[in-house]
Amino acid sequence: MEVAKHWRETPERYRLEAGKCSKCNTIVFPQRIICPECGNRKFTTQSLSGKGKLVSFTIIRIAPGGFEDLAPYAVGIVELEEGVNILTQITDCNPEDLKTGDPLVAKFRRINEDGKTGMIYYAYKFVPDAGL
């Protein structure tokens, strides 16, 4: 991952900031230039709640580089309270125990790193919502 690309995406990755169309109120995440519903180009910033339900998921057993220590882990689509779907890693659980519909909540986690001397990348992941 490029340092500058990650830095540009800080609002989404660190704070779950979405764009809300000023015309039709559609919420887009990540933020876009043009509203996919009405073509409007003006958005306000809205922080997402980070709470949602698991819509679908798969279990990664052969992990790509940088994720080996986490395997097996789940990657899934979470529908947030605001109606936005997010593709995310699901952590802090035995992936075999996950079920669609499970309530999940966002946590700030380490995503990957550029080797042992490079940058460390942080962003949201989702965990089972146990009130912790």
Partner: peptide
Amino acid sequence: PSPDEDCITLSVNAAR
């Protein structure tokens, strides 16, 4: 700590 937790993630989640 889980492999994806460190001083920074614990700090952010505690601060939140």
